[in-house]
């Protein structure tokens, strides 16, 4: 009988940039189908974690395993594993200008399947499907620099959903979006996506309850807490320590803890 397998196993993982340590002895297990919110202030190591999970950055110390295989430059150099991994794991960058590097929306969405050498006919079909799914068929021939922020985000999503990935890694998906696009993005993440594993890095606390069943809090490159969203979101001391909450000093809200999930209000600060 097949035992329960872990999707990701991180063991004592440390990642250092020349000046700073972004991840500091992180140990973490992720099971297939989990919806996880990675919480942390700017510079807490969230983005680096996503890049490690996406097989783009590799730890200096410790290891990361995906479905039993260790992710290293060497394992990803082999074409068979690399293609299988790249199809299964998709990363959406925070800055859509990084994600969208092709001349047109169509080329953008077709880029992934083309690199993975899918048959031509299937590519065209799948691209059309992805465009329809994100309701951006009318943008097909547009250049990315002529899209609005919300449109760029939807093209970004289409460009990875076309591969039908099992794991979706999102870096600050609601940052710099207008309220309407933001709520569309949250709706998308809150929908049932079958068995997909969705890992979202964010510091936007009020959306966490909708998009995650588990929260991992990062502070200065270390895991500060790991648990169910309601437990984490009620731990005010923890959130203050991790710089995810702050006390207003100005007169509108002196003494009131803001950005609290139970006090969403229109004046959310993020």
């Amino acid at each position: 009988m097949k035992e329960w397998r872990l999707l990701y196993e991180l063991r004592d993982l440390t990642y250092r940039y020349p000046e700073v340590t972004a991840l500091d002895s992180v140990t973490l297990d992720i099971a297939p189908g989990e919806r996880i919110a990675v919480l942390g202030a700017n510079g807490s190591g969230k983005s680096t974690l996503l890049r490690v999970l996406a097989g783009l950055s590799f730890p200096n110390v410790g290891s990361v395993r995906f479905d039993g295989t260790e992710l290293t430059e060497d394992t990803l150099a082999g074409e068979t594993f690399a293609f299988a991994f790249r199809r299964q794991v998709a990363l959406i960058f925070q800055n859509p200008d990084v994600q969208l590097f092709n001349p047109t929306v169509f080329d953008e969405v077709a880029f992934g399947p083309l690199q993975l050498r899918w048959p031509r006919g299937e590519i065209v079909e799948r691209v059309q499907l992805a465009l329809r799914q994100m309701e951006i068929e009318h943008l097909k021939n547009r250049a990315p620099h002529r899209l609005s922020g919300g449109e760029k985000k939807r093209v970004s999503l289409a460009s990875v959903l076309v591969l039908d990935p099992d794991v979706l890694l999102l870096d600050e998906p609601t940052a710099a979006l207008d309220p309407q696009s933001q709520s569309q993005m949250i709706d998308f993440l809150a929908e049932n996506h079958g068995a997909k594993t969705i890992i979202t890095a964010t510091h936007d606390l009020p959306v966490v309850g909708d998009i995650a069943d588990r929260c991992v809090v990062f502070d200065a490159g270390r895991v500060a807490a790991d648990g169910r969203p309601d437990a984490i979101l009620h731990d005010e001391a923890l959130l203050l320590r991790a710089h995810l909450l702050y006390r207003h000093r100005h007169r509108h809200a002196s003494g009131v803890v803001h950005s609290h999930p139970h006090l969403p209000g229109p004046h959310r600060h993020d």
Binding site: R51, A54, G55, L56, E79, A82, F83, R86, R87, V89, A90, L91, F93, N95, D97, V98, Q99, F101, D107, A110, F111, G112, L114, Q115, L116, R117, R120, I123, V124, S159, V160, L163
Partner: peptide, 22 residues
């Protein structure tokens, strides 16, 4: 800096140095 990030975005979608086009 952008070129580094774009490279990561390309790699994340299967780019391995050789380009394939329709």
């Amino acid at each position: 800096a952008l070129s580094d990030e774009v490279f990561m975005a390309m790699r994340a979608r299967g780019f391995r140095g050789e380009v394939h086009l329709l």
